[in-house]
Design a protein around this nucleic acid. Sequence first.
DNA 1: ACGTCATCTGAGCAGATGTACAGGCATCAG
DNA 2: CTGATGCCTGTACATCTGCTCAGATGACGT
Lengths: 118, 118
Amino acid sequence: MHLIPTDRRHRRVLDEHAVCDALAGLPDDQTVRERAAVFAAMGDPNRLTLLLCMHTVPDISVTDLAVAANMNDSTVSQALRLLRSAGLIGDRRDGRVIRYRVTDTRLDALLRNVSAGR
Amino acid sequence: MHLIPTDRRHRRVLDEHAVCDALAGLPDDQTVRERAAVFAAMGDPNRLTLLLCMHTVPDISVTDLAVAANMNDSTVSQALRLLRSAGLIGDRRDGRVIRYRVTDTRLDALLRNVSAGR
DNA sequence: ACGTCATCTGAGCAGATGTACAGGCATCAG
DNA sequence: CTGATGCCTGTACATCTGCTCAGATGACGT
């Protein structure tokens, strides 16, 4: 099997078998990018803290998140916007309060795991 | 229970109960930082690709990694240095070839999961 | 309507990040 | 030894990030 794309065919290789195996186990580029984006979203301490708070207290308000995470409102708001555009969280309006919660089910296990390292 | 640290006691809060619950479920700062660092390391598409390659082909060489991930040697080398200093991978010298593999067992499940989204 | 409150937005900036390029070091074959 | 090969490092640069600050928006109570 020659899984090496034509544009890299000229490149020197030490173990062609290894390269083909690696390529065979690789998802397509778009999938990799999507997954990486999820990890990147969790890769910031402040955002991870926010996610953990939303995980333990679903439908928590922005103000309370800001106090719990020790960040100021504006910073929280921007972090939440990023997480929301990544599809990880969802919001719900409740009067003039907006409540956030984790909606991506893939995060549940990960966040539980992080909390376990307490 | 008043889990809110004294330096934030003056801040306005909507639901003190929620804030305390969120704080109670939070690991200490250092733990959060460590976990975030792991996610951040996986948060770059190139690095995630490299990790996936090392996951499916343990002890793969730098040259082969570069071809499989379609990056040039130097970029791969720097990415590997970052991953190594994060403690996620380990290296083994074999003549003039250096072989890398994933050593952090926590990544196994995560990488398998990413591969599944193929 | 008015003031207050919860949240969002935009601008600006310091610092971090990722990549390419050039060159260096170490190892192997002849 | 000499040249080729595999890998690493330093530098430079453009880009991205995350934060703060100031101000805007929208909803509530009176």
